[in-house]
Write a protein that binds this DNA or RNA. Structure first.
Length: 751
DNA sequence: GAAGTGTTAAATCGC
DNA sequence: TTAACACTTC
């Protein structure tokens, strides 16, 4: 054998790797070499001659994980004549459905509709039903529909089984959504799994042939499977029982898309006689980090107790930093990052709960010339111009694809406005068929205004003319499309920086496309990768600092991790608090903590502008901070004022006084005492204790100084409308003894 | 009726 | 920062 497995793996790891036949569950704690074990297992199966590479199917949840696993296997074994199939659940579904979708009444060249397409369609439907998007947010509709589909509910089933307040409306939207989706011959992400399961259930022979073909099945991140994926795995093991699942229930963070932790907890029930091997030695983090993470997650009730241990030393304490506002938080992070970069450290990550938090960090990093890599956010394939270009390609292949057609019908503007489109849709609604057919009808019958007919005719001819291009390679077709549709010209005309970027992106897309030859399959592959792709990661691959959400960080490790925005409402997210889904948030926090190898920073901001509020609100430190053992934390640099932080209270006081002086505007003002370290610590330990109320209503302006009889001088930090006549005023008092943020409704005095 | 311009509100997580 | 919406101009 090429590899000395016994030397490279610890005893339980090696045991898991050599367990070739029969069901196996590897319960792997964070940093216990989970990915290593599963890749070594793939290698071992091949290396030992137990499996031909083509008999192995390894399923992951993200493209990134699949790609990495492929690379690792290749590193271990070198180039193989045949490669094992390593892909995501969704791309496996696509693979199967592209071959057999006809059996379910779909065309094989069905279109995959992603989130953006779904939203466009749903908005349209809601509009048709006369519902404003504000009363029923499209994201909520989408999640309801997705949940229903993952339960395999039809719109009618949903109506019966749901307790939602507006179930009837939701069911109707759901019904129309399904109809439209089917009519344009499309599948959404949920369908990719759902329909694969349906296919296998209706045609057991097919399931069996797949099961026979892939005699060894490996599943990564098993705790994140939903019931459909679980069913798919069951179907894929109908001809054998060689399934190896790796997972950690403490890292289950995809409940929101239907993942169900009980799948991993019941693995032995589903696959009787399964072996369970636990990996509990952590090779990643220092003892302090590991201890903090374990302490945190032990607050969860829904879990098996396990004991992670490490041979590593205690390492540094965790550093907690309290910033005055998000800008100061970002500056602190940038400063620390700068120090690590000087020391030559390169594995640094800034992890946050929600994508919008990335902006403040990007801004500071750019200002300080710190090269960073942003994962997620608006990715290449989500850009408008890229999606438009792909929509053109889809339409010239299959003009009946309504959703793609709608995207480009007036892009660039060609005189087909909302009213005309409305008419076309009415026609489709009354007479059936597709929009494309409705356009033909409008041109022939001339029932619309002459201008509209002219524009539609030109559009029809444009598409008709472009259709022959589908015989060429995608790159050639795309280039021609951009030319003839006037898309490129329109951007060139604009002559703005943004238009220039868009042109560059289209050029980039052409480069990607040029890797694909002519032919149906090649086109399909190109378009599918666009739909299933998440981010283009060759951009600044070697940047020392990575910015990403906690969800994106799963499975990765970094020497230094900054976990930022640790405020109640942000993390744990307000929605999770409302839904009483704190345990999943805590697991997410656990995932974040355990990404760090050597050094972990926890930061939060005392003020933050959220949800477009007109004023900055005050935040409460995340409840998770209180669940970490005090003795593992050091509080650092908490002296923040305005946008800056200061190393000592003396410096802080000087700066604050100066700022206050220049802002005084004739109001009474006297010297004051500022926060001390002890004050801040006490405030953190119990925030409510320090909250006070302003007794006298008055008029306030942000930034202005006020004086209170009892609490002394303070600065108005926010004034925001509350009820009709009321203003919510937030004041920070600077005198000793009272230092917290005071809130009170003050009567608005109208001018 | 379409296109261009200005304004305002909004924002979990992701295949 | 974006995207939907209202409003004006052609």
């Amino acid at each position: 054998m090429k590899i000395d497995y016994e030397r490279e793996l610890n005893p339980p790891q090696w045991e898991a790797v050599r367990h070739a036949e029969g069901p196996l569950l590897i319960v792997a704690g964070a940093g216990s070499g989970k990915t290593r074990v599963i890749t070594y297992k793939v290698a071992y199966l091949i290396d030992s001659g137990r499996a031909h590479p083509a008999e192995i199917l390894a399923v992951t949840f993200t493209n990134k994980a699949a790609r990495e696993m492929r690379e690792r296997v290749e590193n271990l074994l070198g180039n193989l004549a045949a490669a094992p199939l390593i892909c995501t659940f969704h791309s496996f579904g696509v693979r199967v459905l592209r071959r057999h979708a006809e059996r379910l009444g779909f065309r094989r060249d069905f279109t995959i509709y992603d989130v953006d397409d779904q939203k466009r369609l749903l908005r349209r439907i809601q509009k048709d039903l006369g519902l404003s998007s504000s009363s029923l947010p499209v994201d909520r509709v989408r999640s309801v529909i997705s949940r229903a589909k993952n339960q395999r509910w039809s719109p009618e089933d949903y109506l019966v089984g749901s307790h939602d307040f507006d179930a009837a409306i939701l069911a109707e939207i759901f019904r129309r959504y399904q109809t439209e989706l089917r009519r344009s011959g499309g599948m959404d992400f949920d369908d990719l799994i759902l329909l694969t399961v349906e296919l296998f259930q209706r045609f057991p022979d097919l399931a069996e042939s797949y099961s026979r073909r892939y005699r060894f099945l490996l599943v990564d991140e098993y705790q994140d499977t939903n019931s459909l994926q679980c069913e798919l795995l069951r179907l894929l093991t109908c001809a054998h029982r060689n399934i190896t699942a790796v997972g950690d229930e403490d890292q289950a963070i995809y409940g929101f898309r239907g993942a169900d932790v009980t799948n991993i907890l019941r693995f032995e029930e589903q696959f009787p006689g399964a072996r369970v091997i636990k990996l509990q030695q952590n090779y990643r983090s220092t003892a302090n980090i590991l201890e903090a993470a374990s302490a945190l997650v032990s607050h969860n009730e829904n879990r098996r107790e396990k004991r992670l241990w490490t041979e590593a030393g205690a390492g540094d304490l965790l550093t907690m930093f309290v910033a005055e506002d998000p800008a100061a938080e970002a500056e602190f992070v940038a400063r620390e990052v700068g120090r690590f970069l000087e020391w030559g450290e390169s594995g640094i990550a800034v992890l946050y709960r929600t994508n919008f938090q990335s902006r403040q960090f990007e801004e500071v990093f750019r200002r300080w010339s710190i090269p960073y890599r942003l994962v997620g956010g608006v990715s290449f394939y989500e850009r408008k111009e890229v999606r438009d270009a792909l929509a053109y390609l889809k339409v010239i292949r299959r003009p009946d694809d309504d959703i793609s057609l709608l995207r480009i019908i007036n892009e660039p503007s060609r005189g087909i406005g909302a009213a005309t489109i409305q008419r076309l849709q009415e026609h489709v609604h009354d007479h059936g068929g597709s929009l494309w057919q409705a356009i033909q009808w409008a041109v022939e019958e001339r029932t619309l205004g002459p201008r509209a007919v002219l524009s539609l005719k030109a559009f029809g001819e444009l598409i008709e003319g472009l259709r022959t291009l589908s015989r060429e390679a995608p790159a050639i077709a795309l280039d021609e499309i951009l030319k003839r549709s006037g898309y490129r010209a329109a951007l060139e005309m604009e002559d703005t920086e943004e238009a220039g970027d868009r042109l560059l992106n289209l050029q980039e897309l052409l480069t990607v496309a040029s890797g694909f030859g002519p032919g149906d399959e090649s086109w399909q592959e190109f378009l599918d990768q666009g739909s299933l792709h998440t981010e283009l990661d060759e951009i600044d691959e070697h940047a020392a600092v990575t910015l990403m959400t906690l969800h994106n960080a799963k499975g990765l490790e970094f020497s230094v991790v900054f976990l930022v925005g640790l405020e109640d409402g942000l993390f744990p997210h307000a929605r999770a608090i409302e839904d009483r889904a704190i345990e999943e948030e805590r697991r997410l926090c656990y995932v974040g903590l355990t990404r760090a190898k050597k050094k972990l920073y926890l930061t939060y901001s005392r003020r933050r502008r959220l949800y477009g509020a007109s004023a900055q609100g005050f935040s409460t430190p995340s409840r998770f901070l209180k669940e970490l053992p005090r003795e593992l934390l050091e509080v650092q640099g908490e002296f923040a004022f305005g946008r800056r932080t200061y190393d000592t209270p003396v410096e802080l006081k000087a700066a604050a006084l100066q700022s206050l002086e220049s802002n005084r505007k004739g109001r009474p003002f006297s010297g004051n005492t500022l926060n001390t370290v002890a004050d801040v610590k006490r405030a953190l330990a119990d925030r409510t204790e320090n909250e006070q109320v302003v007794e006298k209503p008055a008029r306030f302006r942000v930034g202005e100084l006020v004086r209170h009889e009892r609490f002394g001088v303070g600065q108005v930090l926010a004034v925001e409308p509350a009820d009709e006549d009321d203003l919510k005023v937030t004041v920070r008092f600077l005198e000793a003894g009272v230092k917290r943020l005071l809130q009170r409704y003050a009567r608005l005095q109208r001018a």
